[in-house]
Design a protein around this nucleic acid. Structure first.
Lengths: 229, 229
DNA sequence: GTCAAATCTGACGATATAGTCGGAAATGAC
DNA sequence: GTCATTTCCGACTATATCGTCAGATTTGAC
């Protein structure tokens, strides 16, 4: 075995670089086509065409379209979570956290339309009975990251399900607004709009959380059933 | 011409009924399959199979899958808007309006999972460059309905774009929460969860709107601000 | 009953896409 | 340079789906 790369089987160098480049070309092309045609209607031929490589090359790098999608979504959400972690580290005030979260999301998807489409398409896929296998995990990780951030900032202890509800509301609000803004007229700058709404969003989400934290806990005696805890 | 049905070309009766039944069977089957496989991956054969009719029958009733989708989404959103109109008529208090809107959405999608999937899939489709033609109009109508309701309830005049932003935020929040809750663990009852969050949602959306209405107006001169308060 | 129009059927031809495979080209070791 | 290994290519096969069409069946008028 070689000294530099004990992880791989054999020797590396320019070959390794070429592989990475080709692989990246495929990933980039795929993201582009996905944002144009959607996950389902994208054909492998179209991806390889855009990437300007032969069709066989695709199958050399990825077992199937499903694996590719899984990798893309996992990568994208991984990046998002990483930025969230970085920017939110050490914050222990709820308002500050909300403000940063919104900022991070806005900045992340700004000028990365393809990633937002990927995000939204992937999430829409989760509502189906048959979806691309494995793409749920990254989304769950993402939500759980938000949960733990919220948890560390909310005063009194609240239950796991209650946390989950709040995290879903926050995440839903963020992407929900974005997605509807798409229908907006003219060449309105969504990001700037989002920025201008940021203050109000923060304030209302904070209020939402503060009011929900106790009441979300109380679920169960509301109706008569479902004893969460 | 016959006396009963002057609208149609010729004679009607049992034949008319049979047609309607078959057509409805196709629409129902389509909705079901769409919620399982998604719009794109649904095959005509699968729809006719579920509806228990011959394949040719589909093409007798619908020119294409695209037309079918358009009709389904238009119908579904038409129903939703109708309920919204009915329940929100005469309301002139912002808080009451928000409360009713949330209630209507929850009730509407409760036990109508297929419709929610249709709603969400359709909306996800709008983020693409190539989507099913014609499905944007119903969504725009829906948003505009919300706009006019908000307009009639918010005190001071605000501009069209500002209204649009607020309506998007409200609609995004509603469906966004719902869609993320899907990832929720166990057999949690989303509707009940939603119900328990309703109070907080109303309060925070009202606050959001009241804070946004003036500041959304000020877009353009913003930039480094976020003057919450 | 007869006839015409409306509705339904499913086999069929045309087309499109997935995934494979034998071989070409590039790389690295020597 | 040779040779083995990795990477890439694109023509090909196998399969899946669309949309059509000629004919069967049902309905309504008479």
């Amino acid at each position: 075995m070689e000294q530099q790369t004990p992880k791989s089987k054999r020797k590396r160098g320019r070959q390794q670089r070429r592989t990475n480049i080709t692989r990246q070309k495929l990933l980039d092309a795929a993201k582009t086509v996905f944002s144009e045609r959607g996950l389902d209607l994208t054909r492998i031929d179209e991806i390889t065409e855009r990437a300007d490589v032969g069709k066989g090359t695709f199958y050399y790098h990825f077992r199937s379209k499903e694996k590719l999608i899984k990798e893309l979504i996992k990568g994208m959400l991984g990046e998002l979570v990483a930025v969230i972690d970085e920017k939110c580290e050490g914050i222990n005030d709820l308002t500050a956290l909300m403000d940063t979260l919104i900022q991070v999301h806005t900045e992340f998807f700004s000028n990365r339309w393809e990633d937002f489409v990927l995000f939204f398409q992937g999430r829409a896929d989760l509502t189906l009975q048959v979806s691309y296998s494995g793409i749920d995990t990254p989304f769950v990780d993402y939500i759980e990251r938000m949960e733990s951030l919220l948890d560390s900032v909310i005063e009194h202890r609240i239950s796991k399900p209650a946390l989950r509800r709040i995290a879903c509301a926050v995440a839903g609000f963020l992407s929900g607004y974005y997605s509807f803004a798409v229908i907006s007229p003219q060449g309105e700058d969504i990001d700037e709009t989002f920025r201008s709404l940021r203050g109000a969003m923060v304030a209302s989400l904070v209020r939402f959380i503060k009011e929900t934290a106790p009441s979300a806990e109380a679920i169960g005696n509301v109706e008569n059933n479902t004893s969460v805890n």
